[in-house]
Design a protein around this nucleic acid. Structure first.
Lengths: 125, 125
DNA sequence: CAGTATCCACCCTGATACTG
DNA sequence: CAGTATCAGGGTGGATACTG
């Protein structure tokens, strides 16, 4: 149990709200899937797969979608047809993340070159 | 090489600015160390260690500090005394992250209960 | 089409011991 | 004090084969 003082509150790292969010988007694919669904609203499994490219395995796409669904960032709708059809739609909760992501992106674009220069300098020392 | 369309641009996931940021803070300790240094400005190695608690190993604290230093989020100053003294100070770049973290925290506090309810509901189904 | 199931490799992390 | 070196375990992610 980690106890620290952050921003004037005693926080347990396992209950830290920021960590709880980042734990879901620190993984390899969640953010990507969300952004893709943000653009298209609704997509089928294979459509998401193609949008990402062949670099994601079916397994990881399934795992990622299930996690995002569990948290309520997207909705999964299965149509009992043959062949099966499953649609994934972003929710309002999912959409509400986009301003945060935008901010991250803007910050990154402004500061990334400084960070990369810092890394290079650090390597050489 | 992953090619996707996000936000009207062709993005390679490895060059995605958001991922580049999150890759650094998706880890277990970086954010914590930054926030601690944000409060105190300057701290010694063992002071950071105590602030976090005994849950972080010396090794991981070292690794985390080195990474943050490499990116330019903090500055490391070593005083060649015996016993040695090393001070870590947050930089302006490091400080510039705090508004983003604040936003994440606010978002998390607003939405976390909904997310947790969603998770519980998902478990039962 | 939209998955599961299984196995495997790697990397992150921690524990421990040692050092300038 | 502030590390480094080494080893070990677990979990994430990937490859492949199979299925309702």
């Amino acid at each position: 149990m980690i106890k620290i003082n952050i921003l004037e509150n005693d926080l347990d790292i396992n209950n830290c709200p920021v960590r709880k969010v980042l734990d879901r988007f620190g993984d390899k694919w969640s953010l990507l899937v969300l952004l893709i669904l943000g653009k298209k609203e609704t997509l089928r499994f294979n459509e998401i797969n193609k949008e990402i490219g062949q670099d994601i395995s079916q397994k990881m796409l399934t795992v990622t979608l299930r996690t995002l669904e569990a948290d309520g960032y997207l909705k999964r709708t299965s149509y009992p047809e043959i062949p099966p059809r499953v649609e994934y739609t972003i929710t309002d909760l999912g959409k509400s993340l986009f301003p945060l992501i935008d901010n991250l992106e803007k910050w990154a674009k402004v500061n990334m070159s400084a960070i990369e220069k810092s890394r290079e300098k650090f390597m050489k020392s």
